[in-house]
Simulated scan of single mutants.
Amino acid sequence: MSSVATLPAEERIGRNRLGTSAIFMVNGTAIGLWAVHIPLIGAAQRIDEFLLGMMLLTVAAGAIAAMPVAGWLAGRYGADRTTLGFAASFVLVMSLPVLAPGLPSLFAAALLFGICNGGLDVAMNAQATDVERVRARPTMSSFHGFWSLGGLAGAAIGGLLIGVGLDEGGAMLLAVVLFALVLALIWRWVQPLPDPDRHEAEPHFMLPNRASLALGLLAMMVMVVEGASADWSALHLIQNTGATPATAAAGFAAFSLAMAGCRFIGDAATARFGRVSVLRGGGVLIALGFLVATLVPVAPLAAAGFGLIGLGAANIVPILIGAAARLPGVSPGAGVAAVTTIGYFGFLAGPPLIGLLAHGIGLAASLGLLALAGIVLLLAAGRVVVRD
C-alpha cells in the first residue's frame, strides 16, 4: 500500500484538509462536552462560581503557557507532527477534570486540560494555514466551521448522555474512545506540505503598534464573548431559567449552531456586504443576544439569545485577523500573530473573570454586561477596519 506522501499532490492536499478538519471537529466536540459538564463538576465538587472561575482560570493559565511552546514546536518539527502530538495528548486528558475525586486533583487535571487544549489550538491552526496556502484559496473559515459543528455535536450529545444517566464521567470516557478511533483513522492524512516560496521565517510575535493593538483589543473583546457563551451558558440557564442539566445544553448548542452556519457562509457575506457592515451587524446581534439571554427568564428564549450571540460573533475574528494581515508597515505574519495573541488571551481569561465577577453581582448580571461589547464593536468597526 502506498503512503500518503506518494499520492498525487491534489489528493494529498485533500486528505490533509480532511484530516485537519477532523481534528478541528474533535476539539470542538470535546469543548462542547466540557461546557455542559461544567455545572456537573461544580455540583460534584460542591463549589460555587468563585471556585469554578478559579478552575477555569487554571485552564486558561495552562493554555497560555503552552501556546508559545506549541508555536516553537511547530516551527522546529512541523505543524503536522505538533498537531498530531497535541491532539493525542488532549484526547488522553480531556476526561480527567470530570473524573477528579477532589479539589487538588481537579485543579491539576484542569491545568493539564488547558496545556493540551492551548497547544492543540495553536498547532492545528498552523496546519490549517499550511493547507490554505497550498490550496491557494480561502479555507480557514471552513476549518473553524467544523470546530463550531463539533461544539454543537458535543453539547447536544453531552446533554443527551447526561439525560440518560451518564453524568459521572461516562459521557467523557465514551468520547475518549471515539476520538481515539478518529485520530487513528486520520493519523497518516495529516502530513507536511511543501512551501517552495517561504524564505526566512517571519517573527511569530511583535510588540503591537497602534493599529494592531486596536484590532487585537476588539478580537480579545469578541473572544471574551465567545468564551463566556461556551463556558457559562449552561449554568446560567440552570440558575436563572429553571432548565435541567440535560436541557441546559441548549444554550451552547444554539450558540454553536449559529456560529457554524455563519462561518460556512462568512466569506460570501463579507464579499456581498463588506467587512465594516458585517462587523457592525455582528455588534448589534451580540448586544441583542445578551439582553435576551439575561433578561428573559424562559429557557428556550434565553437559549435563542445565545444563538443570536453566535450569529453576531461568527465572522468577526476572521475579519479582524484578515485586517491585521493588511496593516501598512507591518508584515502579514507579524500582524496576524500580534492580533491573535491578544485575542486568544480574551478567550482564555474572559470566562474565569466572568466567574469571579458573578461571585459578587450574579451570573446573569455578569453576562449581561457583555452586551456592551456589541455596542463597542458597532461604534469602533469603521475606525479600525478600512472600508471595502
Score class of each variant (00 low, 15 high):
6 T>D: 15
7 L>T: 12
11 E>L: 15
16 N>L: 07
24 F>P: 04
25 M>L: 15
25 M>D: 03
27 N>T: 08
31 I>Q: 07
32 G>V: 07
33 L>S: 03
34 W>C: 02
34 W>H: 06
35 A>M: 13
40 L>R: 09
41 I>K: 00
41 I>P: 03
46 R>D: 15
48 D>E: 15
48 D>I: 09
50 F>R: 14
50 F>I: 15
51 L>R: 11
54 M>C: 11
73 L>W: 09
79 A>L: 09
79 A>I: 10
84 L>I: 11
87 A>F: 05
87 A>S: 12
89 S>G: 13
91 V>A: 01
92 L>C: 13
95 S>A: 15
95 S>V: 15
97 P>A: 12
100 A>D: 09
104 P>A: 09
112 L>F: 14
112 L>A: 15
118 G>A: 08
118 G>V: 09
121 D>H: 06
133 R>W: 09
135 R>H: 12
138 P>H: 07
139 T>A: 13
140 M>L: 14
141 S>A: 14
143 F>I: 00
145 G>H: 10
147 W>N: 12
153 A>E: 08
157 I>P: 02
158 G>N: 11
159 G>R: 04
159 G>M: 07
159 G>Q: 07
162 I>D: 01
163 G>I: 05
163 G>R: 05
170 G>C: 06
170 G>T: 06
171 A>Y: 01
178 L>A: 15
178 L>W: 05
181 L>K: 06
181 L>I: 13
181 L>D: 08
184 A>Y: 09
186 I>E: 03
186 I>T: 07
186 I>F: 14
189 W>E: 04
192 P>V: 10
200 E>W: 04
201 A>N: 09
209 N>K: 10
211 A>W: 05
214 A>L: 12
216 G>R: 03
218 L>K: 00
221 M>A: 15
223 M>I: 13
226 E>V: 07
226 E>G: 06
229 S>H: 04
234 A>H: 05
236 H>F: 06
239 Q>W: 05
242 G>N: 13
243 A>V: 10
245 P>V: 10
251 G>P: 03
254 A>D: 01
257 L>R: 02
259 M>Q: 02
262 C>D: 00
264 F>C: 06
266 G>P: 08
266 G>W: 04
268 A>E: 12
269 A>V: 13
270 T>Y: 00
277 S>K: 11
285 L>W: 01
287 A>P: 02
288 L>E: 04
292 V>M: 09
294 T>F: 04
295 L>E: 06
298 V>Y: 15
299 A>G: 04
305 G>Q: 04
306 F>M: 10
308 L>T: 02
310 G>M: 01
310 G>W: 00
312 G>Q: 02
313 A>T: 08
313 A>Y: 01
315 N>Q: 07
317 V>C: 02
329 G>N: 10
332 P>H: 11
345 F>H: 11
350 G>N: 03
351 P>D: 08
351 P>C: 11
354 I>L: 14
356 L>R: 07
356 L>E: 02
356 L>G: 12
357 L>C: 12
359 H>Y: 12
359 H>I: 00
371 A>G: 04
376 V>Y: 10
377 L>R: 00
384 V>I: 14
